[in-house]
Design a protein around this nucleic acid. Structure first.
Length: 424
RNA sequence: GGAGAGAUGGCAGAGUGGUUUAAUGCGGCGGUCUUGAAAACCGUUGUGCCUUAGGGUACCGGGGGUUCGAAUCCCUCUCUCUCCGCCA
């Protein structure tokens, strides 16, 4: 959520930045500011009346103690009359506040000025391509879903039976590989100073709102209606919400958190060719990294996180590229996002395996997540997060790219975790 | 699932209608003292909003109500704790 103060003080800047993502309703900014004008006016009047009322109540109390009943009753009548004019003002204030919030909630984050304008993914900007070449697999290359079947690593049909499409069962070395990747990613994150925790994977509505999934992505999360909880679409939600309603001392920044969770996404409305095998699932595993940082340093931190994720993908020996998303392709809450894509050799497709974003104060505003520097007033902190990494497409690329006549080679860094060097 | 208790400032904890815009203690910060530290003493210490200043206003789990006046009374919701039952 953008703050009304920011819009008031930086209206033109906000509009320019919203234009980067081709936000179709820039007039909402003006609407919010008009409502804010009204709100401040009403609050001024209301506060004056309330002050009078408070004074009267105190005087009445004093008169009663002094036994001056008649005078007290006079003032009581006066106060009763005052109350009548207070009520409508209170109503107007509440309405104005609600209306402002309704507008603000519809405004996406303002993209960083470094974000390229654009509307679709075709306008994303490649900012890095590592030196690992696309594998030359030849005619007999098999897609990961075939390999998974051949080596009995993943049973899609069984998952389909137990639950439904998009809920695979990992078996044998496939299951071990999952566990190895999770442990490896968590250990690497710990080396970078991220504090590991194991969060709940059901979250309440406040948490969903805090990180921006609610209300606009309501349909993307599984909702436990009986208890009004949501299955997490990413560990970002519980991790970031640890700090909801918290004021962090500036000396404790940055806060660095990591967690492994299964992630659940309904993927409503996503049909088509990209859903085969591991390419798009309703349940998948992911290790997430989150940082809470001082606004002055958040973009340095974003680069640091990007470099860390790059080193992780690199260590697995996969060909990958980093895309800076254009304004139109960025998520609602993001101010700048880097997507990581690995090349899956048999499908000959680039698959997104990580998304690293700076949300600036957008989430913090919703979360009431602030930091305090010395004796200054608390200010919203900046939040960032990234996948490090999402497993399924990594597994897809590893299987496809590392396939040989003799089996599938396991990257060296994973061998201590898997206990085997290849899948045969 | 059954029964009971409770939700107050960073923490502990008082407060059942009127200088409570919340006592007291601990913690934090500043100071006095000291070579330094500890102790002791003194002061200070929440958040949002409105306001040029001074100040005003709201917030005692959420929402609603009674009253001139609510942390305090009423209704309602949520959550937490204890005991019992069930159970990984």
């Amino acid at each position: 959520m953008l703050s009304i103060q920011y819009l008031r003080e930086h209206r033109d800047e906000a509009l320019q930045r919203l234009a980067i993502r081709n936000f179709p309703q820039p007039e909402l900014v003006g609407k919010a500011l008009d409502l804010d004008e009204e709100r401040r006016h009403v609050q001024g009047e209301l506060d004056t009346l309330l002050a009078e009322q408070n004074t009267l109540a105190k005087q009445i109390g004093q008169l009663f103690r002094d036994g001056k009943k008649d005078e007290a009753n006079d003032l009581k009548n006066k106060s009763t009359a005052l109350k009548e004019s207070v009520k409508p003002l209170e109503h107007r204030l509440a309405e104005a506040q609600k209306a402002i919030r309704e507008v603000l909630v519809q405004l996406p984050n303002t993209p960083s000025v470094r974000v390229p304008p654009g509307t679709t993914e075709d306008e994303n900007e490649q900012v890095y391509r590592n030196e690992v070449q696309e594998p030359a697999l030849g005619e007999n290359a098999r897609a990961h879903w075939d390999l998974a079947k051949q080596y009995e690593l993943i049973d899609f049909e069984l998952g389909n039976k137990v639950t439904g499409a998009g809920f695979p069962v990992y078996k044998g070395k496939g299951a071990k590989l999952q566990r190895a990747l999770i442990s490896y990613f968590l250990d690497e994150a710990a080396k970078q100073g991220y504090e590991e925790s194991q969060p709940p994977i059901l979250v309440n509505e406040d948490s969903g709102f805090g990180t921006g999934q609610l209300p606009d992505k309501e349909g993307q999360m599984y909702h436990m209606q009986l208890d009004d909880y949501y299955l997490v679409p990413t560990a970002e939600v519980p991790l970031t919400n640890y700090y909801r309603d918290v004021i962090v001392d500036a000396g404790n920044l940055p806060v660095k958190l990591t967690a492994y969770t299964p992630c659940f996404r309904r993927e409503a409305g996503s049909y088509g060719k990209d859903v085969r095998g591991l390419n798009r699932l309703h349940q998948f595993d992911k290790v997430e990294i989150v940082q809470i940082q001082h606004p002055d340093r958040s973009y340095d931190t974003l680069e640091e996180m990007k470099d860390y994720v790059a080193s992780l993908v690199e260590s697995l020996g996969l060909p990958f590229r980093i895309m800076k998303l254009c304004g139109g392709d960025m998520s609602f809450a993001s101010a700048l996002t880097y997507d990581f894509e690995v090349f899956a050799g048999a499908q000959r497709k680039w698959l997104e395996v990580s998304s690293v974003s700076n949300f600036e104060a957008f989430q913090a505003q919703r979360l009431q997540l602030r930091f305090r520097e010395g004796k200054q007033k608390p200010r919203p902190a900046h939040t960032l997060n990234g996948s490090a990494l999402a497993l399924p497409r990594i597994v897809a690329a590893l299987l496809e790219n590392n396939q040989t006549e003799k089996g599938i080679a396991i990257p060296e860094v994973l061998v201590p975790y898997t206990g085997f060097e290849s899948i045969k």
